[in-house]
Design a protein around this nucleic acid. Structure first.
Length: 556
RNA sequence: UGCCCGAUAGUAUAAUGGUAGUACAACUGUUUUUGGUGCAGUUUGUCUAGGUUCGAAUCCUGGUCGGGCAACCA
């Protein structure tokens, strides 16, 4: 209990609120996604924050879909969002929709019109933009600003009844056209959209804007702490203005810096382009930074939650290194993933002094990190094996601990072998490595007294199963995509996906379970892809193992 | 050019006027039948100029740099 964990700025605010008895100490947060795309790792940060704060201080969190734009939103996205939040391990209190408040919001608008705090404006969108002025010059009124309350009421009601076409008029708040905060220069409250909404169907012809929806939705739900990202800082004045003018529960908005991760993009708009234009196979492509993509890639909920914990919460712009995400998944999987052997890029090894018609079973523990190893599996061994192509070097360097003519290695869970010769085809490509094994060196009963520096993995050529293995690299070639707007796609990494269709896996992996992760010894963590079928196994590489071997070689 | 945020090792994040710490990354050693894991260690930092103070990363002022705001998107 003496452990001192420092508080982030939101925890400090909340603890102060509790100390001061604000809202009787009640804490209610919300996670407010717009159902117009899939959730990504940046949303995970927000989810962990909102649900985490509530859990920490005895509060609750609502899931509220911010669905005020019928043109982009879809129930399909609602379903994926719910699945992703649940998968991450969070439970919302209430499932709500901004569209549930459309009638209430309409009533709020009427109140503001009657107070002469809102007016119908039939200016074009361009004219309104011009009249708002610029960052350095104040705005000027449009003709609609002078309209009487009675006429505003009439026109707004006609807007609601569908009497006008899209874009013909809007409802605006009457605040201050000279405000240094552009958001306060008579912002739009309602626009006309003759469009079908995913929940209210064709009931409405007018739809409220974000600013006229979000704060009041928070207020209606009695949200105490409405946490959003930094780009909404300038909206806070407006958020408070509507609440004050309507005299409703004063929810408060706080802003934190959104998550960025290097070598990827974190904008639904850009991710949607990658999907629509076929750069990836879908929202859940394992290269995508989406929750569903990470899940398919083999990331676990715990690893993502841990990542969100480690990155911290603050108000400055940040780009987190991808390697931190990789650390988090390795940390989790190292403790839990069962070890298996798979040869991704095979060459044949022939053990010349091993009888041709014999095989014997070796045993390998499932998990060396767990007490008792979590059991064992059999590894059939015979004269012909598959080993990794790069575990053999024709002219090995001094620091190469693996195979070359005259060198010895341990075959993991089996014998020590000595390399005698190798064969090449006419293209000068190595096809076979010939070795002799040391019978007394059998794993577990080694009396040979020989110590070897290297251990390599292998599978029996007679018993191995074949599989496709998909290797992934960064989606983009540059770290920071923030400066690249229109042309971000030019930086897509053409080698972000490598598919190996001729890999050999140990027999037990034929029983690989969907959703379970395996460590392919010395190669990384892998999981079955959702494209996989019983007779056509496909594994995704989640992440490689940390590899210090390249350093040793570089030095020579 | 107006308003608003922000600035601590390569990347993040603490230190709330009193020893600049932690994680990742990098590097070294050690253990190891995974060049994995574990363990031990090393390197690297307060944007700048003034001011207040016994004492400033912290408070004040000016500057510099980065970001946001002028969608009928959220």
């Amino acid at each position: 209990m003496s452990e001192e964990r420092s508080l982030n700025f939101l925890e400090e605010i909340i603890e102060q609120d509790i100390r001061e008895g604000k809202n009787q100490g009640r804490i209610l947060t919300r996670f407010p996604p717009e159902p117009n795309g899939f959730l990504h790792i940046g949303h995970a940060k927000s989810i962990c924050l909102n649900f985490g704060l509530a859990a920490q201080y005895n509060g609750k969190t609502n899931l509220r879909f911010d669905d005020t734009n019928p043109l982009t939103e879809d129930t399909r996205y609602v379903e994926s969002i719910k699945e992703d939040i649940s998968w991450l391990g969070f439970k919302w209190d209430k499932e709500l929709y901004s569209s549930d408040y459309f009638e209430q919001l309409y009533q709020f608008a009427l109140i503001l019109i009657r107070k002469d705090k809102a007016y119908v404006d039939e200016s074009t969108s361009e004219a309104i933009a011009v009249a708002k002025g610029t960052l350095t010059e104040p705005g000027v009124p449009t003709p609609g600003r002078l309209r009487s309350v009675a006429e505003n009421l009439l026109l707004f009601n006609e807007m609601k009844q569908g009497k006008y076409a899209d874009g013909e008029m809007v409802l605006r708040a009457k605040i201050d056209l000279a405000s240094p905060n552009m958001q306060m220069r008579d912002p739009l409250m309602y626009r006309i959209r003759h469009a079908r909404h995913h929940r209210t169907a064709n009931k409405w012809f007018i739809y409220p804007m974000y600013d006229f929806t979000h704060g009041q939705s928070d207020s209606l739900e009695n949200i105490t702490h409405s946490v959003c990202t930094l780009e909404f800082v300038t909206h806070r004045d407006l958020y408070n203005w509507f609440i004050k003018e309507l005299d409703i529960f004063p929810s408060q908005q706080y802003e934190f810096a959104r998550l960025n991760v290097n070598y990827t993009v974190m904008s639904k708009r850009k991710l949607l382009q990658l999907v629509n234009e076929g750069f990836v196979s879908g929202w859940d492509d394992p290269r995508m930074p989406t929750i569903s993509g990470l899940r398919r890639r083999g990331y676990t909920p715990a690893s993502i939650r841990n990542f969100c914990e480690k990155i911290g919460i603050a108000k400055r712009e940040n780009i987190i290194e991808y390697s931190l995400l990789e650390f988090c998944i390795r940390e989790d999987l190292n403790k839990t993933a069962w070890r298996r052997m798979a040869v991704l890029d095979p060459i044949k090894m022939v053990i010349t002094n091993y009888p041709a018609d014999v095989s014997e079973d070796m045993v390998g523990e499932n998990n060396p990190e767990a007490d008792g190893g979590e059991g064992y599996r059999n590894l059939p061994f015979c004269k012909d094996l598959w080993i990794e192509r790069d575990d053999f070097m024709e002219e090995p360097s001094k620091k190469f601990f693996r195979l070359g003519v005259g060198l010895m290695v341990r075959l993991k869970h089996a014998y020590i072998v000595k390399c005698d010769s190798f064969l090449k085809d006419k293209n000068n490509k190595i096809t076979e490595v010939h070795c002799t094994y040391i019978p007394e060196s059998r794993s577990g009963s080694d009396t040979s007294g020989i110590n070897v520096k290297g251990t390599i993995h292998w599978v029996s050529a007679l018993h191995a199963k074949i599989a496709e293995i998909r290797l992934y690299d960064h989606l983009f070639q540059i770290e920071d995509l923030s400066g690249e707007e229109a042309d971000f796609k030019e930086y897509i990494n053409p080698e972000s996906l490598t598919s190996l269709s001729n890999a050999f896996i140990e027999p037990d992996l034929g029983n690989a379970i969907n959703g379970k992760s395996y460590q392919f010894i010395r190669k990384g963590y892998f999981t079955l892809d959702s494209d996989s079928l019983p007779g056509n196994l496909i594994f995704n590489r989640t992440v490689t193992l940390k590899d210090a071997s390249s350093k040793g070689n570089k030095k020579i």
